[in-house]
Structure formats: structure tokens, C-alpha cells
Design a protein around this nucleic acid. Structure first.
Lengths: 343, 343
DNA sequence: ACAGTCACAGAAAACCTTTTCGGTATTTTC
DNA sequence: GAAAATACCGAAAAGGTTTTCTGTGACTGT
């Protein structure tokens, strides 16, 4: 039945007016029928629904937004899309929102303050209903503003303003978990090759390691070694370590890349992993842990879950729940692989 | 001078009505004043502008959009946010749009057809002005739809429909460039360790390599070896190669990861790089090339430029320019590092 | 038969901005 | 000094939807 719809040419997107005309009712009735309001005869409702289906009617979100003062959008403002840390957070948030009816705007400030302000204002101009700010590292960062008209959740890097709500991975706990795992699997002579001391993540993980070592009644076989996050640093530090500490049986590396370097050095030196020394990293970076020899045990920071949590928190805040603010630390988890297998 | 603005409480975002009232003019005049229309006395215009500044007026994009039938937004629909290939494309596109006044929606289909349709319709419902579809690999993919009401640019993986416009990296040329570089730096006995043959990228790069080898009047010292994209494959293939072909002096690996494995195997075997054998990869993946020993020469697929180009093409299409459609291949570039240094 | 309910439909306002058009005062032209 | 042009401003409509309020006809109970 290919009847033509008078007044509707099919090129332009159908409006409620088209639906109403086709169903022979007023615009008001059509709206009520489609939105499940009562005050509409069942038969009329069906006619409207059929008409809407026929012209593929989809309400114009701009008209809806104009009316109810909400856009159904949120902004994701990242400092650093390149770095692989913020990405899973974005993914988690995007997924959590996207499966609902919220659409997400993405903007990358690239670590530039000007750009950040630009994008923040672009978001505000667009009337996003909320905002997630994802930093490029876990160091505390300046707030985006104290009197913003919309709720903001800071993810990864917490806001310096205690009134803001921040969600961060628990790096201290990550350090503890690492030690507990090694101790559980029978290691007693542990060393820590940390990362760049300028990063809070490095210091936090170190703190966790030291706490857990003390709690286990042990002490590190060597002073904590700070350096960079690179494989090269992992190699140098490991060589020095093996030289100085013959009884060494477990190396905690503050990143997967460092651990990768450590593994390489140990292989060069002929030290078998995990038979003589266990090696463990942080971040659980798939590309690194899977291809290393042997596969690397690593502490996963649960970034995707963090993104999801941020999205849920934002959703709550947008629906009016007031929160005290502050920094919440989210749990991390250890992924065991061959590099720390019990011997 | 903290005078209160009658009728404007500061909580709600200021509207043109507030500005007009504050400046003592009509809404129409206020609009014209702010939009640089003539028919406004210079002095009046100044008053309006001052009023707008005072209440921090920003036009409501929903009202504007409703009127002009455009939203000033585009959708970025990716198949795979995790994979590191689509990300730089997104970055390029985001940057190109974001520096203008276009905002970008992001959605990740995660390789799932249902999810893809869901997000496509979410975008259409939001009335985005255009769409960029980023695939997870270079294999041709199904079109998103033949009769979409907005322009669509396919990036990375081209659409199977020849009427669609697709932008892809030139993998054949990438293969050629790799060979030319090795030949130029004095290598004559080349082998190719390719990737997973199921991927068009692997076959295209292989084709380019073979063409360029022939063009140089040479031939590969071994049949093309297909395998996987992993370091492990790079190691096995390299060991076999070194075993069988003593005169070998250049290995082309179809990805940086394969190359990384190859370098590891060569070091294990005591074959010096680049002194005896040059090694070269594809993708220029920072984390891999920088930390490998020696640093790895690699063919960069220029993904960010591809994203920018896609954004520009979409902008053209949105402003009405008709394009013939088809697949356009974008140039790639070689980044030389120590692993292929001339001896 | 009549007041009072009830079920349903539609008119109109509201959201905010832009543009067209008409109107009023002022200036220019001969 | 009259006629025409100019400069400026505001009213109103348009864009698409939702909601409130009013209206109408049918039904209930006595």
C-alpha cells in the first residue's frame, strides 16, 4: 500500500506536525499519544503510533531540549588522548552513557590550558548536562571552576579543590597488592624499581609497597630506585640490582614498560624468570604483558571501571543528588601470569 | 560596581531577553547588535554588547539549531576505540573540528553490528550535520546506509559501496617506501615477514614490497612469510630466516611488534643490527619503536593527518559540495632510526 | 430530566533565537 | 518647505515539542 502522504515529501525529517496530520489529530494529541500520557483514547494512540512509524518520526532533540532545559548530553574533557591511560576511562564512560540515551561530546585539550578553557566553554555553550574531566596522570590538578552551572566529575587526576568530586585509582593499594601477591607466592627478598619520582603515581605505589613489606615483617633488599617509566630504566636498574643483591627473588616494577626492560635484562644475564626471580608490573598494558617473555603479571588499574563509575556518579549528580565532594579511591586488581608463578 | 540586574537572578543562564532588558532594547535589536547586523545604531550596539558581557550571555545552540536546521555537531563512530589505530584518526578529526565551532559526538560500536546501528540512529536522532565512520582495520566494510540524510566519510576501512567517500592510508605505497629506503641505504638481500594474511593491510604491504623489489631489479631472498601481528611471530620467523639465508641484510616486518620480535631474536642470535641486518617496521608505534634496541625505523601511516583530512572532507560535504565518492589513498611517511642506519 | 463525572481532544503558551517586515523619526534633495 | 530617502527600532513569525488548561460530548446516579 504505497499511498502518498499529503504534505510530507519524505526528504525533510518528519515532524510531529506530519504525524498529527497523517493520524488526523492535533499536534498535542500526537505528542501525548507517543509519550504514553493518558488522556488519549487507545484507538487514537494506535493510529498516531502507526503514523509515526510510517513517516519514521523521531522527535527533534533540540526542540525537546529547548523546552525542558536539558540536552541529554555530557562532555568528556580529556587532557591527553594520546596517552593510553585516559582512553580506557573514556571508553568506560562512553559505554555507560551511550547504552542509555545520553550522548557524549569529546574534546581533547592536549595538556594545554588555553585549549582546555576553550573546550570547557564550548561545552558550557552547548549546554551539556554534565562533565567528566579526565587528566593525563594522577597528580592533583586545578579545578575547572568553582561555580560551574553543571556537575563535574574529575577522573584519574583529582581536583585540588576539595569541594569537587574526584575518582582516582588506588595506587597505594596497588603497591600493597603487588607485595602481597609476591609474598603469597613464596618470595621474600623483594626490590622495587619505581618510576619517575615527579609523578604521584610513582610515589603512591612506592608507599603501598613499603607499607605491605613492613606489614609482612620484611624489608626491601635495596633502597627504592626512582628513574623514568621506560624499558631502558628497567634494564639499567635490574642490572645494578642483580649485581648487588644475589639473594634477590622478586622485582616489583612500577610500570609494565619498566618490567619489560627488567625481563629483558634478566634474560641477557641468564637469570631465569620466574624460577629464580619473579617480576611484576603495573598497568596491565595488553600489548606489553602479552608479548613479554614470560607473560607478565601486572596490577590492572581498572580504568574502564573507573570511567563507568565516573559516568554513574555524574548521572547521579545530574539527577540532583548532592554529594559532599572529595576524592574517592577505586580498587585495583592483580592479574597473575607466568612471570610470578610459584616455583 | 555590583548593581543587581532586575529580572536576572544569575542562577539560570542568561537569555537574549535578559540582555535586551538590561540594555533597554527589544530582543530583535539585541540579536542584531550581537550578530553584527546593520540597522543598529553604533551606540546601541555597544550598550547591548556591554549588557551581554555583564550577564555572560551565550546564545542557546538549541534555539539556534532549531531555527536554522543545523546543529553544528558531527558524529565520530568508531568500531574499536581500544585498538590504537583508530585513536589517532579520531584525534586528528576532533582537533580539526574542535578548533572551529563544531562539536563532536563520540560513539564506540566495539565491533558490534547492533551497537553500530544503535549509535548511528542516536546520531541521526540528534541531527548531527555529518558523520565520520572509523573502522578497526583497513578491510572494506559494509556501508552504514545508502540513503542517509547527512554526509558520511569512511576513514581507515573503506565502504564497500563505491558511492560512499572513503579515506584510507596507502598500504601499498607503504610497502614500496620501505623497500626503497632499504635499497637506498645499501641493502640488497631483503626478506619480508608479513602479518596475518586475513588482513588486507598485510596483503597490501606485501604487494608494495614486491613491486618495489622488482622495480629495483632485485628479488626477495625468501618467500613472503605470513603469520600473526605478534612479537612471537617476529621471533620465530626471524630465527628461521637467519638459519636459511646467510646473505640476508634487510628484514621488513609488517608491523612494529613483529619487528620488535625480530630484533629480540637477532640479539639472541648475536646478529648485530644494523651492522649486519637492517630491520624495519610499520605503524611507527611510539611505545614500541622508541624503546626497542636499537630504535626502530618504521613507516608512519599518518593517521592523525588522515583524521584531519576526513574532517575537512566532511566539512566540505556538509557545506554542500558534491563529491563523486570512491576511495582515496593518503600518503604515508618513513621515519628513519638506528635500526636501518647505513653501515 | 438534571446535575455532576468522566474521557478524550485541541488551543495555546512556553522554551530561545533569528529574520523579515512595517513603522517612526530624522536627514537629505531640489 | 515639501517629498523622498535614510537610519534605526520593534513586533511578529518561525522552528518542533511538551504541558496546561479549556472545551465538548457521553455517561452516571437520582
Amino acid at each position: 500500500m504505497a499511498t502518498s502522504n499529503p504534505g510530507f515529501d519524505g526528504r525533510r525529517a518528519a515532524t510531529l506536525r506530519d504525524v498529527a496530520a497523517l493520524a488526523g489529530v492535533s499536534i498535542a494529541t500526537a505528542s501525548k499519544a507517543l509519550n504514553g500520557r493518558d488522556q488519549v483514547h487507545p484507538e487514537t494512540r494506535e493510529r498516531v503510533i502507526a503514523a509515526a512509524a510510517k513517516v519514521a518520526f523521531r522527535p527533534n532533540p533540540m526542540a525537546q531540549g529547548l523546552l525542558r532545559g536539558q540536552t541529554g548530553t555530557v562532555g568528556l574533557l580529556t587532557d591527553d588522548l594520546v596517552g593510553r591511560f585516559s582512553l580506557p576511562i573514556l571508553m568506560g564512560a562512553e559505554d555507560e552513557f551511550g547504552s542509555g540515551s545520553v550522548s557524549v561530546f569529546l574534546a581533547d585539550a592536549r595538556g594545554d590550558a588555553i585549549r582546555q578553557r576553550h573546550h570547557l566553554h564550548a561545552f558550557l555553550d552547548r549546554r551539556v548536562d554534565g562533565l567528566i574531566a579526565v587528566a593525563s596522570n594522577t597528580d592533583p590538578r586545578a579545578t575547572l571552576g568553582r561555580e560551574l552551572p553543571i556537575p563535574v566529575i574529575y577522573a584519574y587526576g583529582p581536583s585540588l579543590d576539595p569541594d569537587d568530586t574526584s575518582l582516582v585509582p588506588d595506587n597505594v593499594s596497588a603497591g600493597e597488592i603487588a607485595v602481597e601477591h609476591l609474598v603469597t607466592t613464596g618470595r621474600r627478598h623483594l626490590a622495587l624499581i619505581s618510576g619517575d619520582e615527579a609523578y604521584l603515581a610513582a610515589r603512591d605505589r612506592t608507599e603501598g609497597v613499603q607499607r605491605a613489606v613492613a606489614a609482612a615483617g620484611l624489608s626491601l633488599v635495596e633502597q627504592v630506585m626512582y628513574g623514568s617509566w621506560s624499558e631502558a630504566w628497567g634494564r639499567t636498574a635490574t642490572r645494578a640490582l642483580v649485581d648487588r643483591v644475589p639473594e634477590l627473588d622478586g622485582i616489583i616494577c612500577a610500570s609494565d614498560q619498566i618490567a619489560r626492560g627488567s625481563l629483558d635484562a634478566l634474560r641477557d644475564l641468564g637469570v631465569p624468570v620466574p624460577e629464580r626471580v619473579a617480576v611484576l608490573g603495573f598497568d596491565n598494558w595488553e600489548a606489553v604483558v602479552a608479548d613479554s617473555r614470560p607473560p607478565l603479571t601486572s596490577v590492572d588499574m581498572n580504568f574502564e571501571a573507573l570511567g563507568r563509575a565516573a559516568a554513574r556518579r555524574l548521572t547521579q549528580a545530574m539527577s540532583g543528588e548532592r554529594h559532599a565532594g572529595g576524592v574517592e579511591k577505586l580498587p585495583v586488581r592483580l592479574v597473575a601470569r607466568a612471570s610470578t608463578a610459584r616455583v
